[in-house]
């Protein structure tokens, strides 16, 4: 029995409203973690200044910001090409994060080595996991929409795009707090 089919009176975009609520709730999750980072910011500032590579991370961040545009186009045009490009940019960003992590771990920074390690890896790590989930979603959408395009409704495109925008927006905050935060006093 396909219950979804039977739900007559629901507005067609109920999925999008659901996704919106999910994102709202997710953002409170990040507010919790960001708050913790800010509480300990002072103790970590010295290490952050010494260790973080603001320039290069800014570069990779631009790629992620750009992917917000491409996913928008993808959703608007149901275009798998734009979808692929979005995923590519997202993957590139993750690669950038990988490099940053490798360098910091090489320098001996660990989640347990000092307070800054704890807050930095937790916050950026949780964001990276969300990017990863986003990539999986993009991939699934890509495959599904090439297999049988008709069964992939606009809710799927719009919903996944919304989530990707969210992941992007979170990074704007995290990048400002963690990286730009070292430049500003």
């Amino acid at each position: 029995m396909s219950a979804d089919a039977a739900v007559v009176p629901f507005a067609r975009d109920r999925t999008l409203v659901g996704v919106a609520l999910f994102i709202a709730s997710e953002s409170l999750f990040f507010i919790g973690v960001i708050a913790a980072y800010v509480v300990f910011r002072e103790q970590g500032l010295a290490t952050a200044r010494a260790q973080l590579d603001v320039g290069r991370t800014a570069l990779f961040s631009v790629l992620l910001f750009a992917s917000s545009g491409t996913v928008g186009l993808a959703a608007a045009r149901r275009s798998r090409a734009w979808l692929a490009l979005t995923a590519l940019l997202g993957a590139a960003f993750l690669a950038g994060q990988g490099l940053e992590y490798a360098r910091l771990l090489g320098a001996g920074l660990r989640p347990g080595s000092e307070l800054f390690g704890t807050t930095f890896f937790t916050l950026t790590g949780l964001h990276a996991i969300h990017v990863l989930v986003g990539l999986v979603l993009l991939g699934t959408l890509f495959v599904a929409s090439s297999a049988r395009p008709r069964r992939v409704g606009h809710a799927a495109w719009e919903g996944i795009a919304m989530y990707w925008h969210f992941v992007d927006a979170v990074w704007i905050v995290v990048f400002s707090v963690v990286y730009l935060g070292t430049v500003a006093g």
Binding site: L21, A24, S25, L28, F30, I31, V33, R110, G112, T118
Partner: peptide, 24 residues
Amino acid sequence: LAAYPVLTSALVMLLVDRQLGGRF
């Protein structure tokens, strides 16, 4: 929707403390 995610964030931090030697 507003309250539970905050608990989840605290739980994640506790897990970092317990499993990755974090110091939150």
